[in-house]
Each structure stands twice: as structure tokens, then as C-alpha cells.
Design a protein around this nucleic acid. Structure first.
Lengths: 210, 210
DNA sequence: TCCTTAATGGAATGAAAGTTCCGTTAAAAT
DNA sequence: ATTTTAACGGAACTTTCATTCCATTAAGGA
């Protein structure tokens, strides 16, 4: 076994271990905000957290391990989908939630760091994928509900609709690196909704339908 | 002056200089494919290119400088927008072009590397933004043409339509890290088009329109 | 062809970060 | 209260990479 980090400190959750973990996670975020993933070093994190770097290496193994654990923590903090009674408001809630996350200095830096880490590290990639798929699945429910209420066509793919809401925002954030504002979130909702109402998100896979 | 890299080798385009540049760019891409941006080192690049690392430092300055130059090179190779006579085909051409780029091992790795680099380096970020804005501007023309032909509503924002075509593909590539196939490209086109036809991309800023 | 000098590259230097050893600390069990 | 042992951390060690010196090479002009 070369990977001592299961989720860091599961065997002895006693005060010290938990305290160390919290301090390291905190320090990791601080470093990410200041230097980004590229500038993140085990050395600095250990120093900032006030713990021995031996500990950081033993429990997290690498920079990617740190951000992956951070991502896992965020996954546990994620909230359930909205349920306002109308698709538009539900989707808007989702868009604003994403906007809030990527706009927030601390969270935004963390997301970008994990995205960067994932481009060259499997562990980070897995944590990232897992986080978003879970979140997409959670919010896809608002589309299911909308279909049941007759607001959207039967067969509309909820997961795809949710992806379509987030995509333009992340695109601006990491690809074109343009500012992302509330207006963009609103546009994303109205455009996705327009396409969904037109049936563009209906899954028509196998052409054996009747 | 601390940045000796103007575009690397502008003064003496003689055989050797050009040869060195080509070798370094080639080696950079190879390294990116194998180790990603995080694993890219000036050392390795120099060794692989068969040039002294002094040269790499002098002409590119840093890892970010390397990827930024690579991005600039790609920008110069980018092709003009399609003009098939119909929006759907034009947009499909765009989607497939993007798909091809991110699916191709070499190009895909390069794009991801620059995206990663841009999260913590200004130079890379600038190169990235510049590349995409230029490309978006180029392809926005197909929407302008479509509007003139009456295929899309007056006032449709071309740049936004093009962004909407790419966004879902990049979202899968770097955020959820799910596979991106031709099917996704097609969906992106049909969904964006549905929204565009419904007028969701019309800019209605000032309500003075008659 | 000869000269000037931009550009290159081998090698040395130094700093920074990764890795490991081993004694110490403090949870958890008895 | 005592024992056991998981987890911690100071410090030494090693590797890797960034950075610079200076002699050498070859492009471009006379």
C-alpha cells in the first residue's frame, strides 16, 4: 500500500488528528487563493498549517491529494436541489448557486485548482468527476418534476439540462477567462429553457420507437 | 527588459534559430501529452528538443511562456469560418472543429495544459483568452450571415451563439471530465439552434426597437 | 571570403521541494 | 492509572529544477 490517505484520519478521529486535518485543509485553500495550483507546495502548506510536513506527505501524499480531499469535503457540504414549484425558478436557483460558487474567491480558486490538477492527475480527476456527477444527478430532479408537471416535454434529459445550465458559466471561467456575472447566469437559464421547451433535450436514442 | 521572448527568434530567422524553435515547440507538446502541464519542466523540454536549456530559458522564460507561445502558434494556424449557406451546417462545422481539436491527443493535451496553466499564470491566461476571443469573433460571422438570410431572428448575438456551441463540449472535457463524442457535438448544435430560433440569443438591451 | 555579433549550449551553482529516519506525543484501550 | 500504538514532527538527506557564466557556433552583412 502506497496510499495512506483513505480520507485522512479515519482510524483515530481524536482531537489532534481532526485538528491537523482542519488546519491543513484551511492552509491548502489559503495557498490556492494566493498562488493557484501551480504554486501550491507541500512545504508551504505544512508550514502554514503549523504541522510537520512529514504529516502532510503521509496523509495526503501529494498536492493533488490535497485538492482531491478538499473537493471531497465540498461534496459533503453540497446542498439539495431547489423546489420552488416552477422549472424556471428551480433552474435559476441552480445557475445562481453555480455563479455564487465560482464567483466566491475561496471556492472559485479551489474549483479552478482542482480543474487544473485534474488535467494531469488521476486522483484529482476522479474527485472532480465524482463531485459534478453527483451534483448533476441531484439537480436533474428538478427537471423530472417539471416534466411531471407538464412544464417540459416527456423524455427530457434532466442531467443534460443541468449540464447545459452550468456549461456556459464554466466556459467563461476557465476557457475564455471572461468575467461571469448574474446576467450570464440568467441568460444560461433562459436559453437552456428555450431549447428544452422546444424538445431539444428529449432523448430519442433507438429509432425503434413504434 | 525581463521578457526576452517577443515571439522567440524574430531578429535572426536563419536556419538554426528556426530549427531550435520548431524542436522546442515539438518537444513541449510531447511533454504535455505525456505529463500534462504540471509535469512540464524546462529541463525535460530542453533535453528532448536536443537544445541547451539556457536557450529555452532565454527565449521562453518559463513553462507558461512555452505554452503561451504554443497557443499563439495554434492561433496562427486556425482556419476561417465555414460558409455552407445554412446556419445548421455552419454551426455543425464549428462544433465538429472543436470536437476534433479536443479529441485529438496532441491538440487536446495542449488545450488542457494551457487551461491549467491559465489558472495560475497571467501570461498563459492572456494567450488563452486571446485565442478564443479571436476564434469566437471569426465564427460569429456565420450567425450574422444567418440573420441576413432570415434564418435567425434579427439581433441574435453571434458571439454568444458560438460560445454556446463550444461550452458543453469544454464542460465535459475539463469539468466533468466525461468523454466527448460526435453525438455531443450534434446535440450542442441542435440545442443551441433551438434556443437561437426561439430568440433566446437576441440582445434586447435598450427597448427602443420600434 | 571575411568579419561582426546574435544565438547557442556545456557546465557550474544554488535554492527549493520531495522523501525518509527516528524519537516524541497523545488518543484509545485495559 | 497504566499501557499500547497510531499519528505527529524536527531534522537530515536527496533529487530536481531554475538560473547564470562564458566559451563556441553560425547567420547575415561587407
Amino acid at each position: 500500500m502506497d496510499q495512506p490517505s483513505r480520507s485522512a484520519g479515519t482510524v483515530r478521529p481524536g482531537g489532534r488528528t481532526a485538528r491537523v486535518r482542519a488546519a491543513v485543509m484551511e492552509a491548502t485553500q489559503d495557498e490556492l487563493v494566493e498562488h493557484g495550483f501551480h504554486g501550491l507546495t507541500m512545504d508551504q502548506v505544512a508550514a502554514r498549517a503549523g504541522v510537520g510536513k512529514t504529516t502532510v506527505y503521509r496523509r495526503w501524499g501529494s498536492r493533488a491529494g490535497l485538492v482531491a480531499d478538499l473537493m471531497t469535503e465540498l461534496a459533503n457540504q453540497s446542498t439539495p436541489h431547489a423546489d420552488t414549484g416552477g422549472v424556471e425558478d428551480d433552474l435559476r436557483a441552480n445557475a445562481l448557486s453555480v455563479l455564487g460558487a465560482i464567483t466566491d474567491g475561496r471556492l472559485g480558486a479551489t474549483f479552478q485548482a482542482v480543474i487544473a490538477a485534474a488535467t494531469s492527475d488521476q486522483q484529482a480527476a476522479a474527485a472532480l468527476r465524482s463531485f459534478y456527477l453527483r451534483r448533476i444527478e441531484e439537480w436533474a430532479n428538478v427537471v423530472e418534476l417539471a416534466v411531471k408537471r407538464g412544464e417540459l416535454p416527456e423524455g427530457t434529459d434532466g442531467g443534460e439540462v443541468i449540464r447545459a445550465i452550468s456549461a456556459p458559466l464554466y466556459y467563461r471561467l476557465v476557457v475564455t477567462r471572461e468575467p461571469v456575472t448574474r446576467e450570464h447566469a440568467e441568460h444560461s437559464v433562459s436559453r437552456t429553457l428555450a431549447a428544452a421547451r422546444a424538445g431539444a433535450f428529449v432523448v430519442r436514442e433507438t429509432p425503434e420507437g413504434s
